[in-house]
Each structure stands twice: as C-alpha cells, then as structure tokens.
Design a protein around this nucleic acid. Structure first.
Lengths: 190, 190
DNA sequence: TTGCAACTATACAGACCGGTATGTATTATT
DNA sequence: AATAATACATACCGGTCTGTATAGTTGCAA
C-alpha cells in the first residue's frame, strides 16, 4: 500500500477530499481514517492547506499519467490520440467512485481568485490544454488552439454532466461531438 | 432596490454566495452586508440552508428568464434560437461579476448526493436541457437529445473554462463548435 | 542496555459558526 | 392613546474547526 506514513496520510486524505469535498473533510476525520494522529499529520503537512495542495498535486500527476498512458496505449496517430483521450475520460467517469473533476470541484470550493487552489486548477487546465493543442497541431488541424479548447470544454462539460446524472453516457456523446469537430477541422485544412 | 426586507436579505446573500462561495459566507457577513440583524434574517429564513435554497431558486428563475428573453429577442427560428443561447451566455460570462455557473459551483460545495443543493442543481440542469431539446427537435435535428446534450456540455465547459481564465473567449469558441454540430445534425436529417 | 527517533494518546487553546434569548426602538393602525 | 407589527441591538450557547502542548510508547541501532 503506502510506503511510508506520509504517503499513507496523503492517500487517505486525497480519497476523502475527492469523495466528500475538501471543506467538508476535517482533519480529525482524515486522522481517524488513516489510523494515525494529528501530531503525525502535522509533522508532514504543516497545515491543512499544505495537505490540500499536495492532494491536488498528486491528482494532477495521476490524471496526466493516466491520460498519457491511455493515449500511447490506444493509438499511435495524433487524430486517434485525441479520440483516445475521450476513451480515458469515459472509463474514468464510469467508475463508481467518480465524483467529477477534482480541479473543477476544488476551485468551486475555494472561490477567492487569489487562493492557491485556483492556481493549481489553472495549472492542470493549462497543461492538459497544451497536450491537446500539440496533438491537434500534429494532426494538422486548421486552428489547433480553437479545436483543443473545444475538446477540453466538451470533456469538462461531460464530467459535470456525468456528475449531475450518473450513467448518462455524457462522455460518449461528447466523444461523438469531438469526432465531428475534429473531422471538420481536418477537412478544411487539407 | 428591494421592495421589502426579505427580498433585500435574499439579494444580498445571493450576491455573496455567488461571488465568495456559499460555505465561505457566514450568516454574520450577510447580516452585516444587508445592514440588518440575525433576528430579522432568521425570521424570514429559518436556517441558512433555507436561504441557500432560496438563493438557488432565485438564480434558477433569473437564469431561465434571461435565456428565454435572449432567445425571443435575438431570433425567431429554432436553429437561430439555439445559437442565441450562446450569445446570452457569452454576455453573461463577459460580465466582470461572472464567477462561473452558480449551480455547478454550489453542487461542488455540497458534495453529498443526498443534499438538497444537488437536487436544485439537477433541476436547473434538466429544465435547461429540456429547452434545448425542444428547440433541437423543432429545428429538425436528427437526434435532438444528443445534440442538446452536446450543446449543454459546451456551455458548461465554456463557463468552467472562462471561470478559470477570464477573457479567454471560451464561449465564442464554444458557439463556433455548436454551429458545426447543429449544421451537421440538420444536414443529415434532411 | 542504552539512546534516539518515530509514532501514539489525549487534552486543550482559540477562533469561528449557526442559531437563540432577551429586550428596545420605530412605525402604523385602530 | 393603546396596540401590534416590524426591525434593531447585544449577548450568549453549544458545537466544530484548525492547530498545539505534553506525555507516553514502540522499535531499532550502536
């Protein structure tokens, strides 16, 4: 499981933050769930805020790795990779543990623009967008930035939709839209 | 301004809930901002939860009215009305007060599935979706449900995107995608 | 065996929150 | 003038939150 206590605490907290919400999850709850004590938690994470940011950082890595791995596994050509991203998110949002996008949710919980959580959310968003833009460019899209932004919006929207109504097939419907947009963007480019 | 104290309190609370977040806005803050006292607030709203639900109900009405008004004003044909919805949301998300979708944000703050806030969010989502589906059907779309879901996802995604990065032109990019999807859905139906 | 570091156990401080109790001032109606 | 409705002022309660202080326990290594 967890190699050391620090990882174990982070893993426990991360799961609770994602499933119950960040503000709704108290430090005592985390400590009890992890089978440890507050003193140990505060040894590794000087404040709850630090723990929250560690959770977002961990989520960021996990998400990006999953996306990149899914892309490499299911496709070789740029165009197919773009569609593979939707397959990854479909698998992700089909899981019973799915509770929406951790970054969208966290950013909604910490509304102040100056909050570090906002920065973490924007950071993930930018990285993800960049991946899509590069693929769109490689695929030869007419306007890679616009296409990638559209695809990202479809994915965000589908996550929100799926969160609101489970088993709505939102991600597959989004993928169908993506296919149309990609084809259209490539057709005009040829 | 506000005809009576109850409306005034709700209006003040609504603005704070939307701009600062619901959990981040304490009752004392609302009372101070409204220039009244807790006793008066609790006379009209038996609990903060009631106030929150009233805020969502008010937001629901305001949003739907704005959408319907914008539709009637800018267009007469179903297809044009669908596009007019994006114009409404573009205007909405261009305002400096824009802080994302109040329902997406609220639902993220109250993560438990059984929470009434979740129901309120789903209720708006369903109503909005129904409006789009009817229009899509009237316009003669091949698959009205799928098309309307795609358009709704584009709008949700654009709101999230615009919230993350202001002035990103997300809603206009979403509208461009919508145009393609609508055209394609109608072309196949002819 | 001794010593040290990691971890546990528990209690508590201080702030904040939602909500209530008690009493007063203002205004309109009759 | 008496009454009732509305709103204000202020203090308080119980609970929860993050974060800390203090003391005890375990395990491992020299």
């Amino acid at each position: 499981m967890a190699r050391n206590l620090q990882d174990h605490i982070l893993q426990t907290a991360s799961a609770l933050f994602y499933s119950q919400g960040i503000k709704a999850t108290g430090v005592d709850t985390i400590v009890k769930a992890a089978g440890t004590t507050k003193m140990s938690l505060y040894k590794y994470f000087p404040s709850k805020d630090d723990l929250v940011l560690a959770h977002l950082s961990k989520s960021r890595e996990a998400m990006l790795n999953r996306i990149l791995a899914g892309m490499e596994q299911h496709a070789s050509e740029p165009k197919q990779k773009l569609l593979a991203v939707f397959a990854v998110f479909d698998e992700l949002s089909s899981s019973p543990e799915f509770r929406g996008c951790p970054f969208i949710n966290a950013a909604a919980e910490f509304a102040e623009a100056s909050n570090p959580v906002q920065l973490a959310a924007a950071e993930f968003s930018d990285t993800f967008q960049q991946i899509l833009t590069d693929l769109a460019r490689q695929a030869g899209a007419r306007n890679p930035e616009a296409l990638s932004q559209q695809l990202a919006m479809l994915i965000s929207g589908a996550m929100v939709s799926e969160q609101r109504r489970r088993e709505s097939g939102a991600m597959r419907t989004a993928a169908a839209a993506a296919k149309v947009l990609i084809e259209q963007s490539l057709a005009c480019a040829e």
